[in-house]
Design a protein around this nucleic acid. Structure first.
Length: 428
DNA sequence: TCTGGGGTCCTAGGACCC
DNA sequence: TCTGGGGTCCTAGGACCC
């Protein structure tokens, strides 16, 4: 079973503010560089779609209401959604906040029928969360997801047509249904792959079903070729995995106005380091690999990564590495996006050496690691935990790093040759 | 019309080890 | 002295998903 909540972010906004009901509502970035993350059906009637630049959406629908998004709120709804699913079975796999795959095999022994389970889940989601959803039932993930999409309401020529909300694709009709779909409908076929397939004369799934895997592999690589060939035959071996391990975690931001100075870029490194460090600690993880991504105004993107011999989860360490990485890039052009990502996780408790970083003042060489004494480690960790607690209770902007004050227009006197993270640990 | 922010997976090359 | 083949780890880039 695949369940997909309808227009999730936009629907939550409408629930929290009923005056929005019936209006074209979106969640996304309203600024010049914003895109639409979620669109109400009223907005979709005007042609607005998620992933569309907000500028375009406004042109299509001048009355469009674009809301900034409250992800903690969506998270709450998502958890309630998962709780409803969990009441049926723990064998489910979330996909983002608003979708789940459910393995129904263990329910068969209990005499629970798929269609009945689907209808009662839909009922509970409607009664308890006041949200609508589409449900797909099939032999595998491929068809279940295609079916849930098909079960939803959709806009045809500006009119909203209702879906049944539940669609079961029986094995007898699978192949015939699949062959009529465009390749773009398949999981893993986005704009780039679709364009490549079109160049090869492959537009429909039935075309894909006739092509040699080796031919496809030369153009798409072996992994994608083999999954697409399988999908085209209606075969999908992917299982429902309920316990997935987090593999990476990061934060990036596209700026309304591109950054033009190294000071601005380094200040953003410190900011991102704080966000990522707190996320790591919230998960009880330390990261060995940190990478920085820079996107320029022409959308050219480049990345730099560094793997350490130990894991880190504190702002000072992340900040030092991020700034060292960003300094190794030839900036010289306005920076549209800056991202910081952490990978190669270890559980915090298994990390052998907890180190802190000190930045070489004025130097452009890579950072060096300094081990803190046990006592200083303990007090630094206590301070950090206290700050996490304050942020949790009063919001992430409640406490800041003194070094960032000047980047926000407040002047801070800094002595030449000294720096924020001195030998006595983080200065806050 | 011009492209976000949270993630996942794959590819390819180079360094290194046995 | 110059060399193969299997494997791991790391880096950089690209595409996809929601």
């Amino acid at each position: 079973m695949h369940i997909d909540l309808d227009a999730f972010f936009a629907s939550v906004e409408i629930l929290d503010d009923p005056s929005l009901r019936g209006k074209p509502v979106c969640v996304g970035g309203a600024a010049q560089r914003g895109v639409i993350a979620s669109a109400s059906y009223e907005a979709r009637r005007h042609g607005v779609r998620s992933a569309m630049p907000s500028v375009v959406a406004r042109r299509l629908c001048p009355d469009l209401i674009i809301l900034p998004g409250r992800f903690e709120r969506y998270e709450e709804y998502s958890q309630r959604f998962h709780q409803v699913v969990n009441d049926l079975t723990p064998d489910y796999e979330p996909l983002g906040l608003d979708e789940v795959f459910i393995d129904l095999r263990s329910l068969r022994r209990l005499g629970i029928r798929p269609v009945g389970a689907a209808r009662s889940l839909r009922e509970r989601i409607r009664d308890e969360l006041h949200l609508e959803c589409g449900v797909g039932l099939a032999r595998n993930k491929l068809f279940a997801k295609l079916a849930s999409k098909e079960s939803k309401p959709r806009v045809v020529e500006g009119k909203l047509l209702g879906g049944d909300g539940v669609l079961w694709v029986s094995p007898q009709i699978e192949r015939a249904w699949l062959s009529e779909l465009p390749v773009r409908a398949l999981w893993g076929v986005g704009p780039q792959i679709a364009a490549k397939l079109h160049q090869l004369g492959i537009r429909w799934v039935r075309d894909l079903a006739r092509v040699q895997e080796a031919t496809l592999a030369r153009h798409l690589g072996s992994a994608l070729a083999s999954t697409l060939v399988a999908f085209a035959q209606g075969e999908d071996e992917r299982v429902v995995t309920s316990q997935r391990e987090l593999k990476s975690l990061g934060h990036d931001e596209t700026f309304a106005e591109s950054l033009t100075t190294i000071d601005q870029v380094e200040a953003m490194c410190r900011h991102h380091a704080g966000v990522v460090a707190r996320a790591l600690r919230a998960h009880g993880l330390v990261a060995r690999t940190l990478s920085v991504v820079v996107k320029f105004d022409d959308l050219e993107t480049l990345s730099r990564a560094q793997t350490l011999s130990f894991g880190v989860d504190d702002e000072a360490a992340l900040s030092a590495v991020a700034q060292a990485l960003v300094r190794s890039v030839d900036l010289g052009r306005p920076v549209r996006l800056l991202g910081l990502y952490a990978t190669s996780f270890l559980e915090r408790t298994r990390n052998q050496v907890q180190l802190s970083f000190d930045v070489e003042s004025g130097g452009d060489q890579r950072q060096r690691a300094l081990e803190l004494s046990r006592e200083r480690q303990v007090s630094a960790a206590a301070l950090r935990d206290a700050l996490d607690d304050i942020r949790h209770r009063y919001g992430s902007s409640a406490v800041g790093v003194a070094a960032d004050l000047d980047s926000q227009g407040l002047h801070v006197e800094r002595q030449r040759g000294s720096h924020a993270f001195g030998p006595d640990g983080p200065a806050r």
